[in-house]
Every structure is written in structure tokens, then in C-alpha cells.
């Protein structure tokens, strides 16, 4: 896969960030290097190997459906840059 400036700008949009032109060029190069590195994995023969999404051979780790948490709105909001009326405040979001 080829990384170009358009793709970097598209990723900026998805990530809600804005890069300078210099950062864009650097990112383009970094992403291309990462992909090339990953591409070496494609050289391996993985026929007949089951895809893994998890590093440990464990399954079915679950909890019972019981309430264990109590209301702590002050604690939850304490690191918020801005809060009001028990809510997090974020920049205006238009639907």
C-alpha cells in the first residue's frame, strides 16, 4: 500500500487532528516505513494457521450481572478539563 499526502490528510480528518506541512511529510515517511516493515510478515506462509486475535490461550472470562459500583460523579469528573451540572463539557457538537 502506498501512503501519500492525501491519505495522511484523510487520517488527520478521521483523527480530528491537524498537522503542519513538515509533520505531514514526516508522517507520510513514517507510515510508509511501518507498512513496509509489516509487509515482511506477508512473506510468511500462513496457510492452515488459524487467525489469532489474542495472545493467550484463554476464553470465557466473564463476570456475573451484579451491581458493584456506586455513584461517584465528583470522582469521575475530577480530571475533566471542564464540567458543569454533573456533566462533562465539550465543544459544541452539531448532529
Amino acid at each position: 500500500m502506498q501512503i501519500d499526502k492525501d491519505l495522511v490528510m484523510y487520517l488527520e480528518k478521521l483523527g480530528r487532528i491537524e498537522l503542519s506541512e513538515a509533520q505531514r511529510a514526516a508522517t507520510e515517511k513514517d507510515l510508509q516505513d511501518i507498512l513496509t516493515y509489516i509487509d515482511t510478515l506477508n512473506e510468511l506462509d500462513t496457510d492452515g494457521v488459524e487467525p489469532a486475535s489474542h495472545s493467550f490461550p484463554i476464553a470465557n472470562v466473564m463476570r456475573e450481572d451484579e451491581v458493584t459500583n456506586t455513584a461517584r460523579p465528583e470522582a469521575i469528573l475530577q480530571n475533566a478539563p471542564n464540567s458543569r451540572d454533573g456533566c462533562f463539557v465539550v465543544p459544541k457538537t452539531v448532529e
Binding site: V67, T68, N69, A71, P73, G86, C87
Partner: peptide, 16 residues
């Protein structure tokens, strides 16, 4: 998580 799913209630009181 073990937070209640009860409907209503003060904002951010069923949050961890």
C-alpha cells in the same frame, strides 16, 4: 463493568 443500567437518575451517577 458493574455500573447499574437503571434508566434516569442524575447525570454521570452510573459511571465508573
Amino acid at each position: 463493568c458493574g455500573c447499574s443500567t437503571e434508566f434516569g437518575g442524575e447525570a454521570n451517577t452510573h459511571v465508573c
